[in-house]
């Protein structure tokens, strides 16, 4: 199991333990972390699992691929920036032990 921490907009921290191979979206939904909707079911099709990857972690997670489907969706999301990713596109692996993800105020 890999430890992932979700930080909500008001600063509340939620630590969850995720099986390798699950995505960060599933980590949030299976553990009832508020603020991650994931309407499309994890298909990179709706941008309602938007997270800001903690600055210290962005290179390990990987940045948005320019021109890819994920970037195309996130361009319309409120508050998207260079640390934005869709949680459904972050597979959890052992190198991400301790990962910190910030949940935006609202999904859209």
């Amino acid at each position: 199991m890999v430890k992932v921490t979700f930080v909500s907009n008001n600063g509340t921290r939620r630590e969850v333990h995720v099986a390798e191979g699950e995505t960060a979206r599933e980590a949030a939904l299976f553990n009832d972390v508020p603020g991650i909707d994931g309407d499309c079911g994890g298909a990179c099709a709706c941008a309602t699992c938007h997270v800001h990857v903690d600055q210290a972690w962005i290179d390990k997670v990987g940045r948005l691929e320019e021109g890819g489907a994920e970037a195309e969706l996130l361009q319309f999301a409120e508050g998207a920036n260079e640390y934005s990713r869709l949680a459904c596109q972050i597979p959890i692996k052992p190198t991400l032990e301790g990962l910190v993800l910030h949940v935006p105020e609202q999904q859209y």
Partner: peptide
């Protein structure tokens, strides 16, 4: 469960922007 997993708003870049 998962009531938002429906197609009414469409998906992809044309997904309804007024959904909320």
């Amino acid at each position: 469960k998962n009531p938002r997993h429906h197609l009414s708003f469409g998906y992809g870049i044309h997904r309804c922007m007024g959904n909320r």
